[in-house]
């Protein structure tokens, strides 16, 4: 079932983002920032976690999932390290993704040339 809901929830999140982009005078960057912040907010109140359990990659692959990852990382770090976890938890949880993107970006810059 998760496969079905991953498709539906992932698709619907994208539709919401698309509608905001098309109906309001904002750039894609504004929409992406909005969604990552929303992911952190809903993650903080425990709702996004439920969506993740329900829709799997449909909730973790879209960008709000990134905000959720940051917040839940903070939650776990605070349990172990106390207040310091507020500062270290977010990036620790997201480290894999960010580092992968940086390395792939560097590699692509060396290997590929922009097409037209």
């Amino acid at each position: 079932m998760t496969f079905l809901w991953a498709f539906v929830i992932g698709g619907l999140l994208c539709v919401m983002a698309q509608l905001i982009l098309d109906l309001f005078p904002v750039t894609p960057a504004h929409v992406l920032v909005l969604f990552v912040v929303l992911g952190a907010l809903f993650g903080g109140v425990g709702l996004y976690g439920k969506l993740v359990n329900f829709a799997g990659a449909g909730a973790t692959v879209p960008l709000p999932g990134f905000g959720y990852t940051l917040v839940s990382g903070i939650g776990e770090a605070v349990k172990i390290k106390g207040v310091l976890g507020l500062l270290t938890g977010g990036l620790t949880a997201a480290a894999g993704g960010i580092k992968a993107a940086v390395l792939f970006g560097l590699a692509a810059a060396l290997i590929f040339k922009p097409k037209t």
Partner: peptide
């Protein structure tokens, strides 16, 4: 549109594209 930008693959695109571009 956002179907391509919102998933994490779009985030990757947003980092890789400028890296290639400004070589």
């Amino acid at each position: 549109g956002m179907g391509g930008s919102l998933p994490i693959t779009g985030f990757s695109n947003a980092m890789v594209a400028p890296a290639m571009e400004y070589r």
